[in-house]
Structures are given as C-alpha cells and as structure tokens.
Amino acid sequence: MGIAENAALIVVDVQEGFEEEAYWGARNNPEADRNIAGLIDAWQSSGRPVVFVRHDSPKPDSPLRVGQPGNGFKGYVEERRGKGDGPGLLVAKYVNSAFYGTPDLKGWLDRCGIRQLVVVGIQTNMCVETTARMGGNLGYEVFVPLDATYTFDLAGPWGWTLGADELARATAVSLHGGGFAKVVTSAELIAAAG
C-alpha cells in the first residue's frame, strides 16, 4: 500500500460526549482510541496533514452540542492538536459528512494538492462511513483503518437491532466491497507511512 507524503488523516468526531454510555449505549472496539492516537502521532511525526473534525450537534439533548463539555475533543486528541510540522485544519460540522462542514474540506484538500485520505474516528457507521463514501465519490483515494473507529449498538425499523460489531462489519463490507474505500488496519497504515 502506497501512502503519499501529503496523505491527509481525517480525525472525525473524537469528542468527550461519546463517553456518555447512558446516552449512546454499548460501544465496540476498546482499542480504537489507542489506534487513533497512534495514527495521529505517525502522521504528525512524518509532517503529513491532519484534519480534526468536530460535530456541533443541533439536537437539544445531545452531549455533542455546542457549549457542553461533551462537544470538546477527547483529551488525547486535544493535546495533539497543533503539533507536527504538516498542515492542519479544524472543521466544524452538524451533519454526518465532514465534507459539509466549515471551512470547506474539499476546497482545502484541493488547494493543498491532497488526493489520499485516511478516515478515522467515531462513529464507524455514521460520520466515518459517510465521510469515506463522499471522499470516494469525490475521487479521492480513501483508506479506513477499521480498528481506529468505533460505534454503538443501534435500533432500526420493525424492531431490528444490530450490535456495534455487526454495524462495523457492515460498514467495512460496504466501503471496501463497494469500492468507496480500502479497509485496512492502523498497523498497515503506520508501516506504509513510515
């Protein structure tokens, strides 16, 4: 796997509000935070660009709404922001895709000549998947290290429910099998970017 010198790491919604289990329910992949931190470190030490995306929820009961402690980045992300020699960006959004945030992510990527994206963060089947799908649709080469994402159990129509692991697998199959992104591991990306 070839990782470009200017491949951008897109860190999606790694916010304190996702720690509120009473609101979200059970999560999967307890190693995700360690893997996200490792990728940020690898990207920053190599001078590659890192984009931090924050979800500013408009929902009045959401732990991610502006003005609430849960809107802030998790501590390990906040302490890494602004570090490294590569370019960086903070995108605020209120929908699933980081491409519908402020400032304009696509415009910034294109001005920087970036054609490769690595998308990590929370939730696997929501904002990570939507951002990866849009990135693929827009012509970027997208990688999703599944072990650097996590999600929560979810209820759908007709009483159907899926566990977090099932949702993560469905996302991996849809993204990889559908040609939107290459689903890989954090270790593979860190080795390729080294």
Rank of each mutant, 00 (worst) to 15 (best):
K74A: 00
V119G: 13
P60Y: 09
L138R: 11
T102D: 10
V144F: 14
P145S: 14
D147V: 10
I122L: 10
G156D: 04
G101D: 02
T130I: 08
T151G: 04
R80Y: 01
T124C: 13
P103H: 09
D61V: 06
G82K: 11
W158I: 02
G139K: 11
G163H: 01
C127I: 06
W160Y: 05
P145W: 14
R169H: 10
G159W: 03
E129G: 04
Q123G: 10
A92Q: 12
P69L: 11
S57G: 13
Y150V: 00
G101C: 03
V142D: 09
R115H: 15
G86C: 14
V51H: 04
Y100H: 12
G135M: 06
G82P: 04
R169D: 08
V53N: 02
Y76L: 00
T102N: 10
G47N: 12
W108G: 07
D147Q: 13
V50I: 07
L64A: 05
S62Y: 08
R80L: 03
Y100W: 07
A172M: 13
M134R: 01
S46W: 09
D56T: 13
R81M: 08
N125I: 00
D85G: 14
R169M: 11
P69S: 07
F143Q: 15
E78A: 03
T151F: 01
F143V: 14
D61T: 06
A132T: 01
A132I: 02
M134G: 02
P58M: 14
R111T: 15
V118T: 15
V91S: 04
L146Q: 11
T124W: 04
D104L: 07
V128A: 06
N125P: 05
R81S: 03
T124L: 13
E79V: 08
E79Y: 07
K106E: 11
G67L: 15
T124Y: 08
A92Y: 10
F73T: 00
W158K: 03
S46E: 12
D165P: 02
R111P: 12
E141I: 09
